[in-house]
Design a binder for these strands. Sequence first.
DNA 1: CATTACCTGCAA
DNA 2: TTGCAGGTAATG
Length: 288
Amino acid sequence: MPELPEVETVARDLDVQITGATVTQITHLDWPRLIEGLDPAGFELALTGRRVERVWRRAKWLLVSLDNGNTLAVHLRMSGSLWVPGAEEPRDAHVRLELALADGRTLRFRDVRKFGRMRLLDPAALAALEASFGPEPLAAGFSTAWLQAALKARTTRLKPLLLDQRFVAGLGNIYVDEALWRARLHPERPATSLRPGEATALHEAIQAVLTAAITRRGSTLRDYRTGTGAVGENQHHFQAYGRTDAPCPRCATPIVRSEVAQRGTHHCPTCQVLSPARRSPRKRGNPS
DNA sequence: CATTACCTGCAA
DNA sequence: TTGCAGGTAATG
């Protein structure tokens, strides 16, 4: 579930809340397989006494920098959430892990589907993880010129390409559909077929869609919560994603749901055409 | 590129 | 009961 805007929201919240806090122990663990690379005892030993220096994000990874140079890396996958619960917020059946902090608070990881993962990274492993992703779409490296050139080099269709974290980091099913709708591009358009103006529109759309979603603290479909345990608000602003048969906000044509690259995909069949009308060779006069 | 697997819950 | 869900890794 969580895509870039959701993970970014959690990272910002947790950075404020737990920077400076010290981990004292694991107080709850009911799904040990969420810990990669260490057994639970080793994981607890590695965390105990560590002070949090900051919380940040790369792609869809939530990264907790520790005072010994290592990093606790958390991936929320489909249904994970990580937050600091209120004092008497009860622990429900889907809480998989809880870390106690020295000040009496806890950091709680809840994950209905058990796809989420955590691992401890030393600096080399962190560098390798960071290097495995494409550019951050809200950072300077993601320029219009870069996107234009990168699209030319790929033969894939837009939807699977934008979902590929090695191409651009952080987009997922929701925001790819939203960005393609905004840019008026069909999800199955071959990346190589984009004209310069279309690449520019896609660049603008990706940044606009992600920025707005962060401002609204992410999209809560079901499980996602911010780092303070609140729901996001962006789900009330979808233009295409999840709006099957609802009118396109631009042209009122019903939004179509299809399957592209094994993912549910939503687009407007009027605004987002697969074969855009090429500029007609003649200046005036439409055939009809 | 497609399929399957990993899991659970919910709506049709 | 079946199909579908924000993600990704492994396997033909």
